[in-house]
Amino acid sequence: MQDAAVATPSTSARAGMRIGENIRVIGRNLFPFLVVAVIWEIIARLEVFSRRLFPTLEEIFSSLYRLTVAGILPMHAFETVLRLLSGFAIAAVIGVTIGVLMARSRRAEDIFLPLVSILAPIPGLAYAPLFLLWFGLGNFPAVLLVGFVSMFPIIFNSWTGVKAVKEIWVRSAQAMGADDKRLFRYVILPGALPYILTGMRLGLAQAWRVLVAVEMLAAVPWGLGWLIFGAREMLNTDVMMAGILLIGVIGLLLEKLVFEKIERYTVVRWGMITA
C-alpha cells in the first residue's frame, strides 16, 4: 500500500491493479469466515444455548481485546509458544539425527524402525499421564511430551528424504572428490531437505495439538491451554473462544511466516517442490 503511495504516475496504475487483485484474494479467503460468523451470531442471538454458554461475537471480541490490552492473553500465548518451540527444537535435532542414521545405517534402521513404527501412531495425549507421573507437573513434562510426540513425523520424513536422495547426485559428488562428511553436508542434507521440512511441519502441528491439551493437565501457571481449561470453571465461554481463536491464529502464523518463508527461500527457489 505504501508502495502505491510513493509510486510514479506511470506505475501507480499497475500498483492499483495489484492492490485490487490483493483485495479480491483477501475477500475470497475471508468469505467463509464471514458466513460462519453470521451463523454464529444468529445462534447466539436466538439463544439456542444459554447466552453464558454461547456468547455473541461482540462479547468474544471484547474479551479478546480486554485480555490482550491487560497483557494476560499475550502472556499466556508467550508461555505456550515458548514451550512449543523448546519441545520442537528438541524434536527437530533428535528427530533429524535418528532419521538420517536410519537411512544411512542398516543396523540403526533395524533398531529404530520397529520402535518408531509402533510409537508413532499412538496419539500424543495418551502418553501424557505417564509423563506427568514420571516428571511431575509443570513445564518439564509438557516440553518433554511435545518433543517426544513431534519427533516421530520428523524421524519418518528425514529417513524417507535421505533414502530419496538421487543416486546421480551422490555419484557426481563422489566423482568430484567429496568424502563422506562433505557428501553428507553438501549433498545428502540439501537433497533431503524437502522431506525434512515436511516432517518438521507435520511435527510442529502435532506439537501444537498435544501442547494445548497437556497444558490443561500439567497444571502450568500460564498457557493458552490452561486459560481455556480454567475459563471453563467460571463458565467464561467468551474467554475460551478468545483463547481458541488465538491458538488458530498462532498456528496459521507459524505456518505462513516460518515454514512458507523457509520453503520459499530454499526448496521452492531450487525448484525441488512447486510453490
Binding site: 538421487k166 546421480i168 547426485w169 555419484r171 557426481s172 559428488a173 566423482a175 568430484m176 553438501y186 549433498v187 540439501p190 537433497g191 531437505l193 530454499t266 531450487w270 525448484g271 525441488m272
Partner: peptide, 14 residues
Amino acid sequence: RGVVFQDFAQLFPW
C-alpha cells in the same frame, strides 16, 4: 576423472 551423465538431474538443484 571428470564424469558427465545422460540424466539432466545430475546437477545439484540447490
